[in-house]
Design a protein around this nucleic acid. Sequence first.
DNA 1: TACCCGTGGGT
DNA 2: TACCCAAGGGT
Length: 363
Amino acid sequence: MRRIKPLSVNTGKKPLEVSFSANIIEWHQSNGRHGLPWQRSNDPYSRWISEIMLQQTQVSTVIPYFKRFMKRFPTIGALSSSQIDEVLEYWAGLGYYARARNLWKAAKVIMREHNGVFPDSYEKMIALPGIGRSTAGAILAFSYNQSYPILDGNVRRVLTRYHAIPGWPGKASVLNNLWGMAEQHLPPENIGAYTQGIMDIGAEICLRRRPHCHKCPLANDCLARKEGCPERYPEVKPRSFRRVRATTMLMVQDEVGNILLQRRPSKGIWGALWSFPECFSDKEPEQCLFEQLSLEANVISRWQHLLHSFTHFDLEIHPIQLRLTKSQEVLESRDLVWYKPGSRLGRGVAAPVRRLLKQLQGA
DNA sequence: TACCCGTGGGT
DNA sequence: TACCCAAGGGT
């Protein structure tokens, strides 16, 4: 790899050697990723959608969701004038549903306060719900050619290794240090190629396990490599206790097989998505149903409970199948709906609930 | 600040 | 298997 003579860079802070960014930019030209769906244009809307989807989510998972989403919501206006239920329907299965709710809210803000034009300044961007420092940096770099740093998992890994930075990167002091490094490494030009390049190195070269140091354009000056064990960085998160929550889901059907769904609270797990009504108390499901929804039903069967593991806790789901004892008109509540098996859902349903729904229809 | 938020892939 | 973690942000 060609070495470039270190130069002073004007970033405001103490500059680091410019060879870091220059090597990345040169490497990216012939070795970086260029064919991803959101790389077809620098349109801030599509970059915004992709950056939000890519938060804590792998590229291969995002690709089909991104294509479907952009086809249905091709502009900020299309997104802002849609129903949140349909946005969540297109998001269902991606997880972290606050991202979809914030996307929808931000689209309305952009229409109302920015005349429908995606903002081009860091301050305006970061004021939008769901856009933090890293996402704003990415959009500014890719869509507006403005020199702002990002700090995703890839960049964290590259920087902690290159500088041999100890400590878990989630810790504030370590994170601040990393943001400083990210800022000081910014190139004087080609910010888009640099930003994409450092992520590509993190994703395809500087792997968490068994990194391909022999292919890395930063290997010559990488301190972790000099120490002999790059896998030591970044240090792993301290382990924390995993809790178990239990919930009873009421799978209510009427006499023709329609299934009752209820909108979940807007915060918490699967916020604003639809699922089976839940029985939170220790009361019997029939009584729970009557008290909460004024519905009379009989228990048909109690299904074997299933354990759904999240990052921070396990959810123990107890499904109970019930049937209405007398026919019921359409419920006069917007938080309740009868779902007709086989029809389009038209609303977001979390993956485990969707699986249960399918089982219930087959039963 | 520590915790919350989801789903799927990798080891 | 039981973890860790992924183009993070909100509270």
